[in-house]
Nucleic acid binder design. Structure first.
Length: 269
DNA sequence: GACAACCTGACC
DNA sequence: GGTCAGGTTGTC
């Protein structure tokens, strides 16, 4: 489900609702969502949430006990605030109890996961260390040289979290359309001018998507259970067979890098 | 780079 | 019954 704008939306909601709040209790309903190792609850119970940040598509919840809860939402993960004592549904895997509300971690497909690590250990976590910068964390020149230095199809390259983090299937399609780059273009051969446009497009689209509180295709909702609006602004994603809003040509849907890619064969070359 | 694997649900 | 889905990881 979630790419950078959706994860940022959740992070903003978490920050507003639980920063400075204390975790009263935790109910773990599904053990297997803890990927690295099963956590000690006493490392979390009684702790205050000191900060919530996003790294790529990861959510990092810092606790006053010097531990960090690292969460990846996978495809269908959700963090939703509900009334104290609300009954978990069949896909609720963890319940965090706060004074004013409970926070349910739900995930239908269970591709998401959590880890609890100490602040010290965080620096040694491989899957965080290998994350590339997101488009807001780098300058245009750096972005261009990263892309130019690889010899790969641009869409799978943009989706590779080790190179640039935060982009997934929706936003890579939307960004490439805006920059008028064909998703199969080989990164090293794309002109600098086009890559400059790609950089601007990435930041612009992500910013607008965050303002719209994400894209809800089927599952995504924010911390209050409300859907995002950016799906209404998609120009290519999910529009295969329909006409391009820019030139009228038929939008194509093709498998590229084992994922469905949506693009306009006339606008994107 | 292509694929399968990990899962459940929606849709045809 | 089959296909598809906002992701990641590991194998050829």
């Amino acid at each position: 489900m979630p790419e950078l704008p959706e994860v940022q939306t959740i992070v903003d909601d978490l920050k507003n609702k639980i920063r400075v709040a204390r975790i009263i209790d935790i109910k773990i309903l599904t053990k297997s969502i803890w990927r690295y190792k099963y956590p000690r609850k006493r490392s979390m119970i009684g702790a205050k949430v000191s900060d919530v940040i996003r790294r790529g598509k990861y959510i990092l919840i810092y606790l006053s006990t010097n531990n960090v809860l690292v969460i990846h939402l996978g495809m269908t993960g959700k963090l939703i605030f509900v009334k104290v004592g609300s009954k978990p549904d069949k896909h609720t895997h963890v319940v965090f109890k706060f004074p004013d509300s409970d926070l349910h971690y739900n995930d239908v497909r269970r591709f998401g996961f959590m880890d609890l690590v100490s602040v010290d250990a965080l620096k040694g976590i491989a899957f965080l260390n290998k994350l590339g910068p997101d488009p807001f964390e780098i300058e245009m020149g750096e972005f261009i040289s990263i892309i130019k230095s690889k010899n790969r199809m641009i869409k799978p390259l943009l989706m590779n979290q080790d190179i640039i983090s935060g982009l997934g299937n929706i936003y890579s399609d939307e960004i490439l359309f805006k920059a008028r780059i064909h998703p199969r273009s080989i990164s090293s051969r794309i002109r600098k001018k086009k890559l400059a446009k790609l950089y601007d497009s990435a930041r612009e689209i992500l910013e607008r998507a965050i303002e719209a509180r994400g894209s809800s295709i089927s599952d995504f909702v924010d911390g209050s259970g409300v859907r995002g609006e950016y799906q209404n602004s998609h120009l290519v994603y999910g529009r295969g067979g329909q006409s391009c809003k820019r030139c009228g040509a038929k939008i194509k849907r093709e498998i590229i890098g084992s994922r469905s890619a949506h693009f306009c064969p006339r606008c994107q070359r």
